[in-house]
Every structure is written in structure tokens, then in C-alpha cells.
Design a binder for these strands. Sequence first.
DNA 1: AAAAATTGGCTCAATATTGGTTCAGGGAGG
DNA 2: CCTCCCTGAACCAATATTGAGCCAATTTTT
Lengths: 223, 223
Amino acid sequence: MPKLVANDIATVLKKRISSGEWIENGRMPPERDLASEFGVARNTVRRAVSFLEEDGTVVRHVGRGTFLTATNPASMAAVVGRMEGTSPADMMEIRQLLEPAAASFAATNASAMELNAVREAHKIACEAQDMPTFEHWDAEFHHRIFACSRNEFLKEIHNLMRILRNQAPWFEMKKRSFSEERRGIYCSEHQTVLDALLRRDPESASQAMLAHLKTVERNLLGR
Amino acid sequence: MPKLVANDIATVLKKRISSGEWIENGRMPPERDLASEFGVARNTVRRAVSFLEEDGTVVRHVGRGTFLTATNPASMAAVVGRMEGTSPADMMEIRQLLEPAAASFAATNASAMELNAVREAHKIACEAQDMPTFEHWDAEFHHRIFACSRNEFLKEIHNLMRILRNQAPWFEMKKRSFSEERRGIYCSEHQTVLDALLRRDPESASQAMLAHLKTVERNLLGR
DNA sequence: AAAAATTGGCTCAATATTGGTTCAGGGAGG
DNA sequence: CCTCCCTGAACCAATATTGAGCCAATTTTT
């Protein structure tokens, strides 16, 4: 059994809360009780609860206790929770909206240094010997294009997509869809995107990215 | 079984990571634990982990541990945190990407009941006597279009945008940009969108929505 | 109303955990 | 013999946890 640290305890607490524990009166047990239950010092529990407090999951009152915040469906936390159930099909649909646009913005706005970073990620991905390394640098290629789109909000949406794609249901799918042949296709498609970026050609960049995402979608969802 | 060397261990670790191990809190076991698990010296594990660090799979912190990049749940919270600083210009840019698409999806996918809900929101907004009421039903009009786009992820992104737009800097901006004349323009543009939806015409719906957002952008950002 | 108990807020020094580094040795293969 | 890699150990530096104590706000009991 791994040692529990504050972060782990925060995770456990979140799970319990989202599974409806303590919901009847919206009140969490006292920190001292949690500490003895988890077998850690009270300070550690305090840090864990602080995390929950920071992201608005709970509110603390001296002398009264720690309370679950009313579950507001429009809260950031709730949105994030629901996003975790995003289906691959839905996400691919949105990727096909956002990534061509990001590529187009990048062709216009990127600095030479940023484009170099994109080129580098592409190069490493092409030369990767194993699937995890390829995976990682493939994702990095896309990420770096968003990074030079000069739209902060777009970048953050992509970060969300990245996180979601690293979660359970996607793993299986990516593993199944991987093959040496497909890797070659992805590399050549990335090359087309990169060339358009280097030519500073927004229209071509957008089209090339869209074409690439269609390929990815076919491979991933088997259509 | 051949003797394990650093490279082999790196491969095993990558496999474990890509199969979702340690994903719940994004933290790898301490090097000393891995060493005893694999039955090798800690130095060897260190070299293996160094490979993962080099290709960016993992980040190490003295005293804290080794963490998977881009997969820790805390990063979700970090993303939405950063989103709070989104500039109106950036968000308008993305709205112009997503809302026309949402309108297009809605024209194809919406049920008659859902379209009725859109129509109702439009009607109440047009008849609204005061700015907060108009504001609310204007937002509701857009929201209900997303609601029938049949893409859960898109809906949640729109929820995020809604939350952000209800925060302080936006509120001021909306107050400044409001006028009776503009309200009339918005209503007639909404009408055009609604008509296209009712005709089940994705292309027109998308175009009408884009035109509307251009107007909003001009008013909001004064361009 | 007063006293006692409960509960979160806070501090601090001691201890434990964890990655970073170095070094002397050993064994396998050229 | 030489080279390369692994072993085992020790120590360092950054960070986290511990355990204890006291305070302040609130609730419960007397």
C-alpha cells in the first residue's frame, strides 16, 4: 500500500463527495476525525481539505465545521466533471472545428522560434522508436501549434482536450488504433501541415490539419 | 529471462504509463520503491526515469516525487483557473468558430420540442422590458441552440464560456454596450438564425449566427 | 448566563520522504 | 586488458509529514 500524502487524501475526499457521501447534511467530519481515520496527522488532512476549499468544493467555518458547497450545475467544477464523460466522437467533432482554426491562426501569428518548436516536435515524433514516445511528441506537435495561435482561450480548451484524451477510455482506443503504417501516414500529414505553416499559408494549414484529423477520426473510430 | 538494464526498465515504465497506471493522481512511485520492485539498484531506475524525463513523459521534483505530465487531475482545475483570465477578444474569436457550428448541428439534429424552446427564448428576449431580462433570455437563446447540437463536449465548452461571461469584466462591458437600438438589431438577427433552424437549413443557420456574432463583437469591442 | 466542549486557524521544531550526486567496486563481453 | 553498465552505499538538498500546542469562533451543556 502506497503511503498517503495530502494530494492522495484530497483525491479520496473528492471521490467520496462525488459519490454522495456526507450529502445528507452537507457536512464533512471534523479534521481530527479524518486524520485518525486516514492515520495521518491533522496538518496533512488540513492541507488536503485546503485543496478542496481552493477549487470551491467545500467551505470551512471555524467552530462549525466544513461543508459541501451547494452543487451548482453551472459551476466550473461541475462543468469539468461532466466533461470527463466526453465521448471520443464528440471530441473529434470539436477538434475538427478548432484545430484547423488554430493552424490558420498559427500560420499568421507564430514567431520563427515558435515554428521551430513545432518543427522539432514533428522531427522527434517521426524518429520515435516506440509508441509512447511517438504518442507524446505527436500530442506535443498539436500542442505547439495551439501555443502559437495567440489565443489564450483556444490554448486552454486544447489543454482540456489533452487532459481528457489522457484518460481511461482513450487509452484503449489509441492502443488499438496504432500501427506502424498509420504512424507513417500521420508523419507525412504532419509534414504537410508544417510546410503550410512555414509558408505562412493559413488556408493550406487549415485544410491540411482538417485532412489529418479526418484520418485520425477514421482510425480511431473505425469509420 | 534476460537481465534488466536501464533501457528495458524505461520501456516497461512507458508501457505502464500508457496503459493508464498511476493515472489517478499522476504520481509515480518513489525511485527507491521501483528499484526494489524491479530488483535493481536505484541508480539504474534513476537512469530509466531520466529517459522518461528527457522525452517529457514525466517531471521530477526533489522531495515531492515524479509526476506524469498532462495527466494529473489538478491540471483540470489549473486550466479552468487560467481560463478566468480570458480576454473578451479571444473569446469572441472562439465563439465565432463554435456557435456557427452549433447552429449548423442544431439545424440538423434538433427535435421539434427543442426548437420550440429556442423559439420561446427568442420570444421572451424580444419582449423583455429591461436589460437584465433581455440579457438572460438572450443568453438562454444561445444556450438552447447549443443544447440541441447533440454534442456534449460542445455544450460544456459553451457552459464554460457562459460562466466566464458572467464574471466581472464582462458585466461592465455588456452594460456599456447596451442600447435600445442594438437590442432591436440582436432580435432581428436572432430571428434570422431561428428561421434557418426551423427551415432545417444548416448552412444558413451557420451564416446567420456568424453574422450575429460579428455584430456582437463590433458592439462589445468597439471595432 | 456561564461553563465546557467542539471545531477550524495557525505556528514551529523535529523527523521522514524523495530526487540529485558521487564514488568505489564487480562482472560480462569485446 | 579495457570498456561499459550495473551495484551498493553514502551523503546532500528540497519538500512533506508529524506531533504538539495554543488561539478564536461556534455550539452544546450546565
